[in-house]
């Protein structure tokens, strides 16, 4: 074997070239992409304001400014509010993916990645995993803030973990929306504009910050069927922040866990193929 290797022609460098290395396996590709994105946080910690300062500010504003005038079926508004803010933070993970992906697509680095012997999907999967980590940091910060202002988990460990699991599952579904928007829009500004005028109001048009009872009937129906509402209701019940929804409540709120599962699967099933198509189109010419 060795003597064959040594018959290298003078032209060919004796150092190993790319042919001599097995391309990295999928896990290493993805891990490398996640590592790259985590390094970005290290360089620009302000990237985390969207899951730290911003939601904490929301918690404080709603708890102390509106809290006094909003009536809920929970003992305290602050306890009632926190799952709402968590759901909103997780919905914004679509934002994080969309902006990050769009910025990569607008730069030469995406060409570099595409010229490497790696799967194109690793860029996407890496970014999605990163986004879940990013949002999870937010969930952690929220939990600590919540504990500080009076939010408590009153149920068992199992239901509590189920609530966090649902939150992550919902985040996974939202990532596909992010991939779709990030791949379709021409600039980060466009992404920002679109997401701010859609996802932002959608997170308000629910039971996140105020009970739906006070809304006009058609709006109330919309809000109660909003996937965010099921998620928030599920978390509140699983954490023991509210009693189970009354029998006359809207159907999604009577079975919030199941509805959240269905919504998450449905959003993923519909949006993921569109998102992948948009990404492939954007990176093909």
């Amino acid at each position: 074997m060795t003597d064959r290797t040594l018959t290298t022609t003078a032209r060919v460098s004796t150092r190993p070239g790319p042919h001599d290395y097995e391309p990295p396996g999928r896990p290493r590709q993805i891990a490398t992409m996640v590592w790259r994105n985590l390094k970005h946080i290290k360089r620009q910690p302000e990237m985390l304001t969207d899951v730290t300062i911003q939601p904490v500010m929301f918690v404080l504003l709603f708890a102390f400014v509106f809290g006094g005038s909003i009536r809920t079926d929970s003992g305290s508004y602050r306890e009632w509010l926190l799952p709402g803010i968590m759901a909103q933070t997780m919905a914004f993970s679509s934002f994080i993916v969309a902006i990050g992906l769009n910025m990569d697509l607008g730069k030469g680095i995406i060409d570099r990645f595409r010229s490497l012997p790696i799967a194109r999907s690793s860029v996407l999967v890496g970014r999605s995993i990163y986004s879940l980590i990013h949002s999870s940091i937010g969930i952690f910060v929220m939990s600590v803030t919540g504990l500080a202002i009076g939010w408590r988990i009153r149920g068992g460990v199992g239901p509590a973990l189920l609530a966090f699991g649902l939150l992550l599952l919902f985040g996974f579904a939202m990532i596909w929306i992010g991939v779709l928007v990030g791949s379709s829009m021409r600039s980060p500004e466009a992404v920002n504009g679109l997401m701010f005028t859609t996802i932002f109001p959608v997170t308000f048009l629910a039971n996140t910050f105020a009970p739906t009872e006070g809304m006009v009937s058609w709006l109330r129906t919309v809000a109660e069927w909003n996937p965010i509402s099921s998620l928030v209701q599920a978390m509140r019940e699983l954490w023991g922040n509210v009693p189970p929804a009354p029998a006359d409540a809207a159907l999604p709120l009577q079975h919030p866990v199941l509805t959240t599962l269905i919504w998450s699967v449905l959003i993923t099933a519909v949006v993921a193929p569109l998102a992948v198509r948009a990404f492939v189109r954007r990176t093909t010419d």
């Binding site: 790319p18 290395y21 990295p24 490398t32 590592w35 790259r36 570099r112 990645f113 012997p117 790696i118």
Partner: peptide
């Protein structure tokens, strides 16, 4: 390091 890793270098 990023590119080395994506090329599969040890």
């Amino acid at each position: 390091r990023l590119m080395g890793s994506l090329y599969g270098l040890p």
